[in-house]
């Protein structure tokens, strides 16, 4: 017998004795989840306001921009403030056109760059799949964010999102994933909730443990 079969045999034998379901045995519905999870307003305006507050609590930099020109200006301001020498970008219709104006050497995260090169970039610019108002999270996947490393390796992660990408809550985010990717999910899906952090030394918060020290989210109207 294979080890797989051995394990399944033990599981099935164990489960012949039924356990008492003290708290019920059925899987909860989405409505049941929503009834207990933190409340979120119904309108987009309320959700954007909630996202703004959560991002601020998380020490992420959240900035609505009116158009792509304003976005470019904001990125140039960041470039100057942080003296970027090199950036990496997700090859997407929203993100990639932005880097030309930066005038710094650019890596395109399309599988050609090495991890050493990516590690030398000052910023990683990605798109996302959604912004979750309830938790202030950015939902990225290996398809919307230039693979796995781009949103985590450079010290500054920059997300460009559209207002229509704001979703109310976690159930909505999972519903969106199912609807968007169905049977063909990206190999990595990540809810990014603020810049990387640790509290492992005396429970004192330090930002930028291994991942980005800074997370900037630009919301295009």
């Amino acid at each position: 017998m294979s080890e797989r079969e051995n394990i399944f045999t033990r599981i099935r034998e164990a489960l012949t004795v039924k356990a008492h379901a003290h708290h019920g045995a059925t899987l909860p519905t989405t409505a049941e989840h929503r009834a207990v999870l933190p409340a979120v307003g119904a309108t987009t305006a309320e959700q954007v306001a909630l996202f703004t507050k959560n991002a601020s609590d998380l020490r992420a930099n959240f900035q609505p921009v009116t158009d792509t020109a304003a976005l470019t200006a904001a990125l140039i301001a960041l470039r100057d403030a942080e003296k970027w020498r090199r950036v990496a970008v997700h090859p997407g219709a929203l993100a990639q056109p932005q880097v030309a104006a930066l005038g710094v050497p650019t890596l395109v995260a399309d599988g050609t760059a090495t991890k050493e090169e990516l590690g030398q970039c000052d910023a990683g610019i990605t798109e996302c799949d959604a912004l979750v108002a309830q938790t202030g999270s950015v939902l990225v996947t290996s398809r919307s964010a230039g693979g796995r490393a781009l949103s985590c390796l450079p010290p500054h992660h920059i997300v460009i999102a559209r207002r229509a990408q704001v979703v109310a809550d976690l159930p909505a985010a999972f519903a969106l994933l199912a609807q968007k990717y169905g049977g063909n999910y990206p190999s990595m899906i990540s809810f990014i909730t603020g810049p990387s952090r640790t509290g492992d030394i005396e429970r004192i918060l330090v930002l930028g443990a291994h991942g980005p020290k800074q997370l900037s989210i630009f919301l295009l109207d």
Partner: peptide, 19 residues
């Protein structure tokens, strides 16, 4: 509220993925 990274992995690098 949520830890910083909650990540799902569904396999090795898939065709068309950067890394």
């Amino acid at each position: 509220a949520l830890t910083c990274y909650n990540t799902l992995y569904g396999g090795p690098r898939q065709p068309g993925e950067a890394d």
